[in-house]
Amino acid sequence: MDFTTTYVLLPTAKIIAVFIVVLLTVLFLTYAERKVIAFMQVRLGPMRVGPWGLLQPIADGIKLFLKEDIIPLKADRFVYWIAPTISIVPALLSFLVVPWGSETTLFGLAKQPVPAVISDLNIGLLYILAISSIGIYGILLGGWASNSKYPLLGGLRSAAQMVSYEVPLTLALVGPVMMANTLSTRGIVEAQKGMWFVVPQILAFLVYIACAVAETNRAPYDLPEAETELVAGFHTEYSGMKFAFFYLAEYANMIVVSSIATICFLGGWLPVPGLSFLHLPSFVWFALKVGVFLFGYLWIRATYPRYRYDQLMAIGWKFFIPVTLINIFITAFFLLK
């Protein structure tokens, strides 16, 4: 392979492919959310645009594009403008190291199969955690810049929540990393060829799921935007595309944390044990596993009430963090033995 293909064309193609897929998934995740929850609540959900309302997300997107972009009079215009951007960029950047399959030829662009990941960083997992911690600023600044009480409360709440839950989230991922002996996302998946890490790391897995829901501000931890308390939380004053950015970031983050869960605990693109005779492409397995997680998100939202703010913090600091620390000790003990 020549230089141009390796360093310019292939990465560009990968980036474009990943981003198109991610954005489409986000779009239809909003549709899926409405449909799935609707069926759980014995109603139909969107039915008007296209067959079974399939074009609803596109209609929503167009609507948001065309909507008037309102900036509150007393808002800090610069911060108000930059907050949604800060929110969405890290969410999308996280996909840089998510391996969506084993190997790919990118529809024949590459002459021999290349790893199905944009960049296989040797600090892959650390990179995701680092970059996603930037996303907090979008919410915090968005809440502050609106110059209104409810958004500010929502912004502060969510920042405190995300900073707190980052700790157990990271600690829960230490277990799989210790077992895989690498931070590379591909490396972690390949280390699970014998056994998925969900079996030895079940404790970390459960904590991770709970923390992931909290980290993405979803029910039952959706306090930052708890509509019955804080109206709409940090994005109360936002409209149009800026609002759409926050919205997209939330769903992109959902996909990111689901992908990490798949990578670290459920064997990434590896087929489900016992079902490998199906010979499905690796990216299908990956998508299926991520899909299970996303469905879980919606299921939880349709089922559970909301925690109170102090209870949420108490669970995070007093329960999840000790449990993950114990899990690290147990893992270390068995690894050293």
Binding site: I37, V42, D222, T228, A302, P305
Partner: peptide
């Protein structure tokens, strides 16, 4: 009441 506390499904039921 359920919706206020966040249980959305009960609302519709």
């Amino acid at each position: 009441h359920a919706l206020d506390i966040g249980a959305m499904t009960v609302f519709l039921y």
